[in-house]
């Protein structure tokens, strides 16, 4: 049976919305938390999909932005909750527990860092790019470990989840609602961007760089902008992830997480709008069900992944629609 991608997208989003509501009715808050986790991971992977899927930049260091978002939330909330002042030289702040402000800060900081990493790493392509992004990601990991003021290796606990005007974020379904809404907004923007002149140009830089240059566009600038946007979205997801766990630690910067974000995209389908969302749902489900069966579920994940790479092309969406490529 072949179905269209649009149909799959609708089913997945509806399912992701109905599951927590059903869990609320059945009084199973843990399922809501699992769904929130899937939504937040999906958001992070949508960010990466912009760079990796559309722009063909295989970044193995996106955990850097995820962690930066997390630590932005952790540091701002830490100062607000301990009534201490964060002094940054030029300006100082007393921190905040307001989610919108935290999101904005997380996105701005991630975007700035993405700009610098992009400036350096986009001078190169291919394998160099992979290794350099991986190395910069690791740089933040070690920096977070040695930064004793904010918990170092032990991480930083935030005891009360940050607030959103008019909502009680400590109620799981309300926090899910916030995350789900953000995911939908970002997916909408992603779809618009994909179809915009910028998206088309980005797609073209992935396919034939020299032709983009020949029509008078600057491929490096296009790729850099995409990388910055991608970092900002992943940073936003990091802030939400930290709020979900009420905890940040250097593991948010770990290279395994960067790898897992790529895995999410590939399970669903590279460069597809809903690829990361499907990937995140499958991943969280695998983690939950296989993890309950055996502590060594990563072995099976590895085998599944190998099979996808060696035998299946186009991820789950490709399998269902019968179309390998995302850009037909």
């Amino acid at each position: 049976m072949r179905v269209t991608e649009r149909y799959i997208n609708g089913v997945v989003l509806t399912g992701l919305l109905v599951l927590p509501i059903w869990a609320l009715a059945m009084d199973e808050p843990f399922t809501i938390t699992l769904a929130t986790r899937a939504v937040v991971l999906a958001l992070a992977a949508v960010g990466l999909n912009l760079a990796l899927g559309l722009g063909g930049m295989v970044s193995l260091g996106h955990a850097a932005f995820f962690g930066l978002g997390g630590y932005t939330m952790g540091i701002l909330a830490y100062h607000a909750q301990t009534y201490s002042t964060l002094n940054l030289g030029l300006f100082s702040t007393d921190g905040t527990t307001s989610m919108p402000l935290i999101w904005l800060s997380a996105m701005v900081i991630s975007a700035l860092v993405a700009f610098f990493i992009g400036m350096l790493s986009l001078r190169t392509t291919g394998v160099y790019f992979i290794m350099i992004t991986l190395a910069f990601g690791q740089m933040f990991f070690y920096f977070a470990i040695s930064w004793a003021q904010y918990g170092g290796e032990d991480g930083l606990s935030i005891y009360v989840r940050n607030g959103f005007p008019g909502l009680n974020t400590l109620v799981p379904i309300q926090f899910f609602g916030i995350c789900f809404t953000l995911l939908c907004i970002v997916l909408f923007l992603f779809a618009r961007l994909q179809a915009s002149p910028f998206g088309l140009a980005l797609n073209a830089t992935r396919q034939t760089r020299s032709r983009v240059q020949a029509v008078g566009l600057n491929p490096t600038r296009i790729r850099l902008l995409a990388f910055v946007l991608s970092g900002a979205i992943t940073g936003l997801a990091g802030a939400l992830f930290a709020d979900l766990n009420r905890f940040v630690s250097p593991t948010m910067f770990s290279w395994q997480l960067s790898g897992e974000l790529i895995v999410l995209i590939v399970i669903g389908g590279v460069g597809r709008l809903m690829g990361p969302v499907i990937g995140a749902c499958v991943f969280v489900a695998l983690e939950h069900f296989l993890g309950a069966l055996t502590d060594y579920w990563h072995v099976y994940l590895g085998v599944v992944l190998l099979c996808i790479v060696l035998f299946g092309r186009g991820g789950l969406i490709g399998l269902l629609t019968g179309k390998e490529g995302a850009h037909v």
């Binding site: 579920w297 994940l301 992944l305 190998l306």
Partner: peptide, 19 residues
């Protein structure tokens, strides 16, 4: 493509480490 190489060898890491 490099993406496939990254993924397949990442999968090998998972298998080796957990194994």
């Amino acid at each position: 493509p490099h993406l496939d190489q990254v993924l397949a060898t990442f999968a090998l890491i998972l298998i080796f480490s957990e194994g």
